[in-house]
Simulated assay, not measured.
Amino acid sequence: MAAYSARGVHGQVVHHLGARIVGGEFTEGDTLDVRALGEQLDVSLTVMRESLKVLAGKGLIDARQKRGTFVRARSAWNLLDPDVIHWRTVGGDAARLLRDLADVRSIVEPAAARRAALRRTDADLAALDAALDAMARAQGDSAAAAEADAAFHRALLAATGNELLGRLDLLLEPGLRERDRLVHAHPAAGDPVPSHRAVVDAVRDRDAARAESAMHDLLAKSTEDLGLLTADDPADKA
């Protein structure tokens, strides 16, 4: 493998090794030969050790005396970590991740939309409208579309007036960003604005039942989008 440049070397090593672990090249209990990996990647032992500390913080690896550095069980991984989520999407586990995300959203977001309709402020509406405007401008730009969508859902949770619900963006946003990055890059992806605008209109009118229903419709559209990504996956069809 070609040598890394000095710029960003730690981050590159972290992403390289993290993707290999999450992708299954290294499995639970495997011992990592730190010196050999450093030689393979053409980086120093100092860089390797610092990079492994980052992976340990994400729950992927651990180190013990007499055993060395080894891969931890999947149950120990921080599955909410943005890097781990990204490595899952590029490592063949995207369908499972997106199904789990859709399940969580179906529990949280309709109830959040209902509460937002009852409790929203003018500032909340301004944030939702700004996110919609950004979404409309982002057509054809998957990165900008993902950012606008994240801003929308962040604003909706904040509009509930519940500080704990408002911080659920920490749970949902990393997965949403990966989902949107994949969906909006698909040539058959539809316009996300109408389904999101229906939620905002109901929240603006303080119509809790309609807001909840509109969010269910938005999630149904999201499920259709997920079908675009998995339609050609034989394992997923099975």
Rank of each mutant, 00 (worst) to 15 (best):
T69R: 02
T69D: 02
T69H: 02
T69W: 10
F70I: 05
F70A: 03
F70M: 05
F70L: 02
F70W: 08
F70K: 04
F70Y: 12
F70D: 05
F70S: 03
F70H: 03
V71E: 00
V71S: 00
V71M: 03
R72Y: 10
R72Q: 14
R72L: 15
A73P: 08
A73M: 05
A73G: 09
A73N: 12
A73K: 13
R74P: 06
R74T: 10
R74I: 10
S75R: 15
S75N: 11
S75C: 07
S75E: 15
S75T: 13
A76G: 01
A76I: 10
A76N: 09
A76V: 11
A76W: 12
A76C: 07
A76M: 12
A76S: 14
W77H: 08
W77I: 04
W77V: 02
W77Y: 15
W77N: 06
N78S: 13
N78A: 15
L79Q: 14
L79W: 14
L79V: 14
L79D: 13
L79Y: 14
L79M: 15
L79A: 14
L80Y: 14
L80K: 09
L80A: 14
L80F: 13
D81V: 01
D81W: 01
D81F: 01
D81K: 00
P82D: 04
P82Y: 01
P82W: 00
P82E: 00
P82T: 00
P82R: 00
P82Q: 00
D83F: 05
D83A: 09
D83C: 09
D83T: 03
V84N: 01
V84W: 03
V84E: 09
I85K: 01
I85A: 07
I85N: 00
H86W: 10
H86N: 12
H86D: 13
H86F: 10
W87D: 03
W87C: 04
W87S: 04
W87Q: 03
W87N: 00
R88H: 12
R88P: 09
R88L: 11
R88N: 07
R88K: 12
R88A: 08
T89F: 11
T89M: 10
T89G: 08
T89V: 07
T89I: 08
T89P: 06
T89W: 06
V90C: 10
V90Y: 09
V90D: 06
V90E: 10
V90W: 02
V90T: 15
V90N: 08
V90L: 09
G91Q: 04
G91K: 00
G91D: 00
G91T: 05
G91M: 01
G92K: 00
G92L: 01
G92A: 01
D93I: 07
D93K: 11
D93A: 13
A94G: 06
A94I: 07
A95R: 08
A95C: 06
A95T: 08
A95W: 03
A95D: 06
R96S: 12
R96A: 13
R96W: 14
R96L: 15
R96I: 11
R96G: 11
R96C: 08
R96D: 12
L97Y: 07
L97V: 11
L97M: 10
L97D: 01
L97H: 05
L98K: 03
L98E: 08
L98M: 13
L98S: 04
L98V: 00
L98C: 02
R99L: 12
R99N: 09
R99D: 11
D100K: 02
D100P: 09
D100C: 12
